[in-house]
C-alpha cells in the first residue's frame, strides 16, 4: 500500500504523517505538492492523506482556499475511483469544504483553540480505517484545533446515521457520550465521519500524535494498522 501526503502551503502536520507512515508503519510514503495536478502512480489500493495545519493561513474559513488547490481535482477523481482519502484536522476541514465529506467544521463553542487528549468511542467498524477496532472501543487521541465543531443539517445527520458513516464520537474514558466529554460542541459529539462509499475519511483528532511508545500513547497507531492491513482489500471491493 502506498501513501501520499499532500503538502498545502501552511500544512504543518505533513512531516508528522510522513514520519508515522514511513518510519513507524514502514510503508512507502511520499509528499505531494499542492500545485501538482496528477496523482501519478497511485491506484485504488493506495491512500492519499490530507494532513493537519493551517492551509493558506486559514484566515478565511478553514480549508476554504485549499479546496481550490490544483491537486484537489485529482484527489476528487482518485476518491471517485475508490482510492482511500484520509483527512485529519485541517485535512478533514478541506475535505468537507471540497464536498468529499458531508458537514462542516465550525468554530469551537468556547471560541478558543484547544489542544489536549480526548477520548473517542468507535462507532462504525465497517471501514478500512476502523475495521480492526471493536465497536464501542475507546481510544485516547489528542485534538488540536480552533474550528472543530462538526455540524450538518438534520437530513444529512439522518443520512449519516442510516448509512453508518460516523467513525468516532467524543466520549468519556469509559465510553459514555456526554456533553462534558465534547470538547468543541460538535453535533452529537461527532469527531469523525466517512463518505457513503466508505473510502473517504475525516477526523479532527490526530492519531499520528499517538502512535509511538516514546510519546506515551499508541492508540492512534491502531488506525494506521487497520488501514494498512485492510485498506487494500476494502478498496478493491469498492472498486468492483
Amino acid at each position: 500500500m502506498k501513501f501520499g501526503v499532500i503538502v498545502f502551503p501552511g500544512s504543518n502536520c505533513d512531516d508528522d504523517m510522513v514520519h508515522v507512515l514511513g518510519n513507524v508503519m514502514k510503508q512507502e510514503c511520499v509528499k505531494i505538492w499542492h500545485k501538482d495536478t496528477q496523482l501519478e502512480g497511485f491506484g485504488p489500493g493506495d491512500c492519499i492523506v490530507l494532513p493537519g495545519g493551517f492551509s493558506y493561513g486559514d484566515y478565511l474559513r478553514s480549508g476554504a482556499i485549499a479546496r481550490f488547490s490544483p491537486i484537489m481535482k485529482a484527489v476528487a477523481e482518485f476518491a471517485e475511483q475508490g482510492g482511500i482519502v484520509y483527512g485529519i484536522c485541517n485535512g478533514f476541514q478541506i475535505l468537507c469544504e471540497a464536498g468529499l465529506l458531508p458537514g462542516v467544521l465550525l468554530r469551537n463553542t468556547n471560541q478558543q483553540y484547544i489542544c489536549k487528549n480526548v477520548h473517542l468511542k468507535t462507532i462504525t467498524t465497517s471501514t478500512p480505517l476502523t475495521a480492526s477496532l471493536a465497536s464501542g472501543q475507546v481510544l485516547k487521541i489528542p485534538i488540536a484545533h480552533g474550528d472543530g465543531r462538526f455540524y450538518a443539517d438534520e437530513a444529512t445527520m439522518r443520512e449519516l446515521e442510516t448509512n453508518d458513516q460516523i467513525l468516532f464520537r467524543y466520549s468519556t474514558e469509559s465510553g459514555e457520550i456526554t456533553d462534558a466529554a465534547n470538547p468543541n460542541g460538535a453535533l452529537y459529539n461527532i469527531a469523525g465521519v466517512c463518505n457513503k462509499q466508505r473510502n473517504v475519511f475525516g477526523m479532527m483528532p490526530h492519531p499520528e500524535r499517538a502512535s509511538e511508545a516514546i510519546l506515551g500513547n499508541t492508540d492512534g497507531r491502531l488506525l494506521f494498522e487497520s488501514l494498512v492491513t485492510l485498506g487494500q482489500m476494502a478498496a478493491a471491493t469498492v472498486a468492483e
Binding site: D16, Q112, C115, A144, S211, E212, L215, G216, N217
Partner: peptide
Amino acid sequence: EQYDSMVRTNSMGTN
C-alpha cells in the same frame, strides 16, 4: 491548552 503542544510529534511530556 490554547497552545498546540504536540505538533511535530516529539513532545514526551503529553502523557
